[in-house]
Design a protein around this nucleic acid. Sequence first.
DNA 1: ATGAAGTTTGACACCGGTGTCATAATGTCG
DNA 2: CGACATTATGACACCGGTGTCAAACTTCAT
Lengths: 336, 336
Amino acid sequence: MKKVTINSVAEYAGVSKKTVSRVLNNEPNVSPATREKVLKVFKELDYKPNPIARGLARNKSFIIGCLYDNPSKSYITRVQSGALEACHKFNYNLLIHPCELRGDELIENVDQLLTTSRLDGLVLTPPFSDSQVLIDFLKAQNVPFARVASALQDDTSISVRSNDEQGAYELTEHLISLGHKEIAFIKGHPDHSATEKRFSGYQNALLKHGIEYKEKLVAEGNFSYHSGADSAKEILDLEPMPTAVFASNDYMAAAVLKLATQRRIRVPEDISIAGFDNAPIARHIWPGLTTIAQPVEEMTRQAVEQLILQISDPSTEVYQKVLEAKLITRESTAAK
Amino acid sequence: MKKVTINSVAEYAGVSKKTVSRVLNNEPNVSPATREKVLKVFKELDYKPNPIARGLARNKSFIIGCLYDNPSKSYITRVQSGALEACHKFNYNLLIHPCELRGDELIENVDQLLTTSRLDGLVLTPPFSDSQVLIDFLKAQNVPFARVASALQDDTSISVRSNDEQGAYELTEHLISLGHKEIAFIKGHPDHSATEKRFSGYQNALLKHGIEYKEKLVAEGNFSYHSGADSAKEILDLEPMPTAVFASNDYMAAAVLKLATQRRIRVPEDISIAGFDNAPIARHIWPGLTTIAQPVEEMTRQAVEQLILQISDPSTEVYQKVLEAKLITRESTAAK
DNA sequence: ATGAAGTTTGACACCGGTGTCATAATGTCG
DNA sequence: CGACATTATGACACCGGTGTCAAACTTCAT
């Protein structure tokens, strides 16, 4: 099986390399007859252009990199699925690269990534989308990127996020409307901007409804199931026990639910539990978790789509969008 | 900021391109003095070789593709994590590519993938690792690949799997030893070879212990939570209700647990439930699921590592390995 | 028929590396 | 010290495409 290159096609079709290249790229200024002829040879020889050669000549790879470091597997797969959708729409591919936010190695690590695989752009997911250091580095290196789910203010880079604060506000209000006044809160990972946003949503809702904010009702988490289990212990040990718990994501909420069930505390009769994200687990457990649906796939899809648009035309206006989060009520919350 | 190429380095160091290339690749036949000098210039100019140019010259991309189509998100992330570990060890990167097994588009789709991004090799995860059509295609195209978790017999391709049959056998035996005789079984997706293996493990254990196999106790699933919910309904509606349920993966087991809890059937007092895979959800719910731990990351890690070895030296012996699966008992199973 | 403008085409350099081979420099040994 | 093997180095083609530019060919108005 011989290799079919642009040269063999050109020779076979009796035209120049460049003309073949023109047909390949749908460039104008090729006579219909010639175009037809070349296209026929493509078929006949089953010609596949070599993307690496093309990449070298155009300095493009048609590969987008996805940076993440997130304890939630479902979050990652949702991100990937949205990113892939956009990539495939434009014939791009997706390269994934988990790495650690902490430490000086981050920049080094990303630098290494850019060195070993010429990426056309990078999608940053939390907590990277919030990292000023990284953003500055990418700008300096002239690497196009888009930020997902970041509250960090930066008008010069593409950003698609959802309204975490409003979501948390609504969820808290939902609990309040059910008659709850002692509402515990489990915070997320301090490196994620969403953590602070969700927390303010919670606080603002309390304030608005004249409910006193009590610090002892707030536990520190980091979005992992494990941290949720620790916080759950703290909260369920409180005297008196709060009548509702709002965890900053569903994994931590699931951990609270598990401990409560273990201790024969009935949910939602004795305590209401709510999460955030509408992760699959929220509907895979009983009772199902009341939560806030974040359009993770949609955010990422839009971010990557805009990223690719910007890559192909750098003069494109910087896209910044906030999508709505939506309250989903299930069985884990009920009137006090 | 000017681009630093091998030419500028060569000029700056006062040597030829080729000598720089030699230093870059740690080739012999460079005098220590020259090597030193060039290395210094690398540092000074902060030279980064262009992987695309190198790829063109060597016909390599240093990218491995990962093919999957699996309803279980946690399975996918575990696969990815194992694959990434191996990739990074050898300075490769990982490109992910979900696609559908069904239909003629599979080959077309993979062909497209190979065309748009020159991959050095492919990791196939179930159900692709079981697809004879795909395997034949890749062999014909001379694309190196490794198969993960496939029971399909093929001595000529790299394969790492775990012993599904034995795992299912052990788990069934565990239930039998607890006194269960009416053990329902939920099958997995028919396209996965693991489905048949787990089923035989179940059947063999029954046989070995003189327990009659009853077809009505077997429900068809497809590894998705949703299919598990359907099967759960079937099984919990049986008269008399079985005293144990063995689902072919943890998601389906979780669905059974959810429905049981909803119906106030106590687990494990009224019914024991077991899964397979040791997915995160198995320990995120209450009661925790008894299950079989499959070393998914390890399988994939080994597969990719061997794949890369074979890419760099095609004469490497074809690696075939079966890893052990391990019984993990949690609260969801108890004596009858 | 003629010139101006527009269209089609190909020659050739180039992207940034690697492989081949000839030549130059150095080392070895009788 | 000369003959020969070994090591170090560079010139140059090549990987498979794309960009530039000039030449050849059309088209069309005058």
